[in-house]
Amino acid sequence: MTTTTGDPVRAEHDPEEPPQPQSGSPAGGEAKRERWIAIGYLLPALAIFGLFIFWPLVKSILLSVQGTDILGNPSGFVGFVNYTRLFSDPDFLQVLWVTFAFTILTVIPSIAIALLIALLLQSRIRGVRFFRTAFALPFAFSVATASVIFGVLFNPASGVLNGILNTFGIDKVQWLTNPDLALWSVSGATVWMQIGYNLLVLSAGLGALPEDVLEAARLDGASGFRLQRSIVMPLLTPQLFFLVVVGTIHSLQSFGQIKILTVGGPEDRTTTLVYSIYEQAFANNNSNYGYASAQAMVLLIIVLVITALQFGVLERKVFYR
């Protein structure tokens, strides 16, 4: 690092390190041959992809423009009826809102808390290995197991959380049945489940920070908060970006904790889009596959748009070394 400007952030845009070219393109017949080989290698994966991803996608589109009889068979073309019903349904607006809120409430805290823990775990204190393992442990829990445990913790009558509050003289809190609180509770449980994975990724990122950059910064007199904010954070942006993208998709598709903790209630205040799809398709003897497929299409579009936005906007701030 050669810059001597006051702002170390600028040091990242080092002209010494031009972005690497994406891939070289060999010339002539060699290229053609390689292309065929590549396709040959890709074929098995493509076949599986086609069968399990693209065929269902086509099928889903087809189902979304059809009605469904009581047994779940498509009952004929209905045009965009499922879609117009969707967008004229005030409950669906709430579903979208819940989905949005749940995503925000899970992605941001789970990354922020994991980051804080990861930074704390960088310190060289005794027993740090134990804590590292302990904090990463939630990753090893299945969603179902963790949800059942949280269900016990949240129990208004016998749950530990209310037990603790009770010792402070605070009245029973209806964690999962209070409409204003349920989404927060489910989100809290989800954050706990996500932290382990986020922590692993961030710890790995922190462990792989280039010593030379850090040392240069220290020599320049940066330390403590300044070092974290201006050197470590920018160097960690690839991992953070990865977690934002993957975490968002993960949250948008969360199902297990909602099914186990609240079954979408109270008053549908924890019914996210995925849960709504499930309800329309499978719950309560429903088999409205047409309507559910229309919702699945909306989900697909939402996920695509958000991901595209993240790549378009956020990725520009990412510093790839």
Partner: peptide, 12 residues
């Protein structure tokens, strides 16, 4: 893949 999995289940 993930968003379509559910839809696929409902294929009927």
């Amino acid at each position: 893949s993930a968003s379509l999995f559910l839809a696929a289940c409902g294929g009927g």
